[in-house]
Amino acid sequence: MAERVLALRVNGETHRVLTSDHRTLLEVLREDLALTGTKHGCDVGECGACTVLLDGRPVLACLVLVSQVATGSVTTIEGLVEGGKPHELQSAFAELGAAQCGYCTPGMILSASALLDEVAQPDTDEIKAALTGNLCRCTGYNKIIEAVELAADRGQL
Protein backbone atom coordinates (compact mmCIF):
# COMPACT_ATOMS: atom_id res chain seq x y z
CA MET A 1 0.00 0.00 0.00
CA ALA A 2 1.42 3.33 -1.03
CA GLU A 3 2.39 5.68 1.75
CA ARG A 4 2.35 9.43 1.60
CA VAL A 5 2.84 12.38 3.85
CA LEU A 6 -0.35 13.99 5.08
CA ALA A 7 -0.59 17.27 6.92
CA LEU A 8 -3.21 16.74 9.60
CA ARG A 9 -4.75 19.57 11.53
CA VAL A 10 -5.36 18.22 15.04
CA ASN A 11 -6.18 20.32 18.09
CA GLY A 12 -5.01 23.46 16.33
CA GLU A 13 -1.62 22.07 15.40
CA THR A 14 -0.45 20.69 12.08
CA HIS A 15 1.18 17.28 12.17
CA ARG A 16 2.97 15.71 9.23
CA VAL A 17 2.47 11.99 9.20
CA LEU A 18 3.77 9.39 6.84
CA THR A 19 0.90 6.98 6.40
CA SER A 20 -0.96 4.84 3.92
CA ASP A 21 -4.39 6.00 2.83
CA HIS A 22 -6.31 3.04 4.17
CA ARG A 23 -5.49 3.62 7.83
CA THR A 24 -8.21 5.05 9.98
CA LEU A 25 -8.12 8.37 11.73
CA LEU A 26 -8.37 6.43 14.99
CA GLU A 27 -5.20 4.48 14.25
CA VAL A 28 -3.26 7.55 13.26
CA LEU A 29 -4.39 9.57 16.28
CA ARG A 30 -3.54 6.82 18.74
CA GLU A 31 -0.49 5.25 17.14
CA ASP A 32 1.24 8.03 15.22
CA LEU A 33 0.29 11.10 17.24
CA ALA A 34 0.12 9.33 20.64
CA LEU A 35 -3.24 10.98 21.30
CA THR A 36 -4.49 8.00 23.27
CA GLY A 37 -7.30 9.97 24.88
CA THR A 38 -9.41 8.81 21.94
CA LYS A 39 -10.62 5.33 22.91
CA HIS A 40 -11.98 2.40 20.97
CA GLY A 41 -14.46 -0.24 22.01
CA CYS A 42 -15.29 -1.96 18.74
CA ASP A 43 -13.37 -0.43 15.80
CA VAL A 44 -16.43 -0.82 13.60
CA GLY A 45 -18.71 2.06 14.44
CA GLU A 46 -20.89 0.48 17.14
CA CYS A 47 -19.87 2.06 20.43
CA GLY A 48 -18.97 5.74 20.04
CA ALA A 49 -15.84 5.53 22.20
CA CYS A 50 -13.72 6.86 19.32
CA THR A 51 -15.80 9.99 18.76
CA VAL A 52 -13.77 13.06 17.77
CA LEU A 53 -14.82 16.30 16.19
CA LEU A 54 -14.16 16.92 12.52
CA ASP A 55 -14.73 20.57 11.76
CA GLY A 56 -16.81 20.72 14.91
CA ARG A 57 -19.05 17.76 14.13
CA PRO A 58 -18.82 14.43 15.88
CA VAL A 59 -17.47 11.57 13.78
CA LEU A 60 -16.42 8.04 14.62
CA ALA A 61 -12.67 8.02 14.13
CA CYS A 62 -12.72 4.26 13.54
CA LEU A 63 -14.85 4.75 10.45
CA VAL A 64 -12.99 7.71 8.99
CA LEU A 65 -10.00 7.10 6.77
CA VAL A 66 -7.13 9.38 7.52
CA SER A 67 -7.05 10.45 3.88
CA GLN A 68 -10.57 11.82 4.31
CA VAL A 69 -9.48 14.39 6.85
CA ALA A 70 -6.58 15.85 4.93
CA THR A 71 -8.36 19.18 4.63
CA GLY A 72 -10.40 19.16 7.83
CA SER A 73 -9.62 20.10 11.37
CA VAL A 74 -9.83 17.48 14.10
CA THR A 75 -10.48 18.02 17.80
CA THR A 76 -9.78 15.26 20.29
CA ILE A 77 -10.39 15.13 24.04
CA GLU A 78 -6.87 16.48 24.62
CA GLY A 79 -7.76 19.51 22.48
CA LEU A 80 -10.67 20.57 24.66
CA VAL A 81 -8.27 21.64 27.39
CA GLU A 82 -7.36 25.26 26.77
CA GLY A 83 -4.39 26.89 28.45
CA GLY A 84 -4.29 24.09 30.98
CA LYS A 85 -7.92 24.68 31.88
CA PRO A 86 -10.39 21.86 31.37
CA HIS A 87 -13.48 22.52 29.28
CA GLU A 88 -16.74 23.10 31.21
CA LEU A 89 -17.85 19.63 30.21
CA GLN A 90 -14.64 18.07 31.47
CA SER A 91 -15.07 19.78 34.83
CA ALA A 92 -18.77 18.97 35.07
CA PHE A 93 -18.24 15.31 34.21
CA ALA A 94 -15.58 15.11 36.91
CA GLU A 95 -17.60 16.90 39.56
CA LEU A 96 -20.81 14.96 39.09
CA GLY A 97 -19.36 11.48 38.84
CA ALA A 98 -20.27 11.16 35.18
CA ALA A 99 -17.14 9.10 34.58
CA GLN A 100 -16.83 5.80 36.38
CA CYS A 101 -14.30 3.77 34.45
CA GLY A 102 -13.85 6.77 32.16
CA TYR A 103 -13.57 4.74 29.01
CA CYS A 104 -16.60 6.18 27.24
CA THR A 105 -15.91 9.61 28.65
CA PRO A 106 -13.75 11.25 25.95
CA GLY A 107 -16.18 10.29 23.19
CA MET A 108 -19.15 11.20 25.32
CA ILE A 109 -17.74 14.64 26.11
CA LEU A 110 -16.96 15.38 22.47
CA SER A 111 -20.49 14.42 21.40
CA ALA A 112 -21.84 16.63 24.16
CA SER A 113 -19.62 19.54 23.18
CA ALA A 114 -20.88 19.36 19.60
CA LEU A 115 -24.40 19.49 20.98
CA LEU A 116 -23.69 22.49 23.21
CA ASP A 117 -22.10 24.30 20.30
CA GLU A 118 -25.36 23.93 18.46
CA VAL A 119 -27.91 24.19 21.26
CA ALA A 120 -26.74 26.24 24.22
CA GLN A 121 -29.41 24.97 26.62
CA PRO A 122 -30.57 21.57 25.44
CA ASP A 123 -33.38 19.80 27.24
CA THR A 124 -33.02 16.25 28.55
CA ASP A 125 -34.45 14.65 25.44
CA GLU A 126 -32.08 16.57 23.21
CA ILE A 127 -29.15 15.48 25.36
CA LYS A 128 -30.25 11.86 25.29
CA ALA A 129 -30.68 12.00 21.53
CA ALA A 130 -27.25 13.56 21.02
CA LEU A 131 -25.56 10.89 23.15
CA THR A 132 -27.40 7.85 21.88
CA GLY A 133 -24.45 6.79 19.73
CA ASN A 134 -22.10 6.81 22.71
CA LEU A 135 -22.46 3.68 24.79
CA CYS A 136 -21.62 3.74 28.47
CA ARG A 137 -21.61 0.49 30.38
CA CYS A 138 -21.01 1.91 33.85
CA THR A 139 -23.13 4.89 34.72
CA GLY A 140 -26.62 4.30 33.42
CA TYR A 141 -26.28 7.73 31.73
CA ASN A 142 -28.14 9.79 34.33
CA LYS A 143 -25.05 11.39 35.79
CA ILE A 144 -23.77 12.04 32.28
CA ILE A 145 -26.98 13.85 31.39
CA GLU A 146 -26.75 15.88 34.60
CA ALA A 147 -23.18 16.82 33.80
CA VAL A 148 -24.12 18.06 30.34
CA GLU A 149 -26.90 20.13 31.91
CA LEU A 150 -24.49 21.58 34.45
CA ALA A 151 -21.97 22.49 31.77
CA ALA A 152 -24.72 24.09 29.70
CA ASP A 153 -25.86 26.15 32.67
CA ARG A 154 -22.34 27.31 33.39
CA GLY A 155 -21.81 28.12 29.74
CA GLN A 156 -24.69 30.59 30.08
CA LEU A 157 -23.07 32.57 32.85
Partner: peptide, 21 residues
Amino acid sequence: LPRVDALQQTTGQTQFADDLN
Protein backbone atom coordinates in the same frame (compact mmCIF):
# COMPACT_ATOMS: atom_id res chain seq x y z
CA LEU B 1 -16.37 14.32 46.25
CA PRO B 2 -15.26 13.56 42.69
CA ARG B 3 -13.04 10.57 42.09
CA VAL B 4 -9.44 11.41 42.90
CA ASP B 5 -8.54 10.86 39.23
CA ALA B 6 -11.68 12.36 37.73
CA LEU B 7 -9.99 15.11 35.74
CA GLN B 8 -7.44 12.69 34.35
CA GLN B 9 -10.35 10.68 33.07
CA THR B 10 -12.27 13.56 31.57
CA THR B 11 -9.23 15.10 29.90
CA GLY B 12 -8.19 11.82 28.33
CA GLN B 13 -5.07 11.25 30.41
CA THR B 14 -5.99 7.99 32.10
CA GLN B 15 -3.72 5.33 30.69
CA PHE B 16 -5.59 2.15 29.93
CA ALA B 17 -3.71 -0.98 28.90
CA ASP B 18 -4.04 -0.35 25.20
CA ASP B 19 -2.79 3.22 25.65
CA LEU B 20 0.64 1.91 26.67
CA ASN B 21 3.12 1.84 23.83
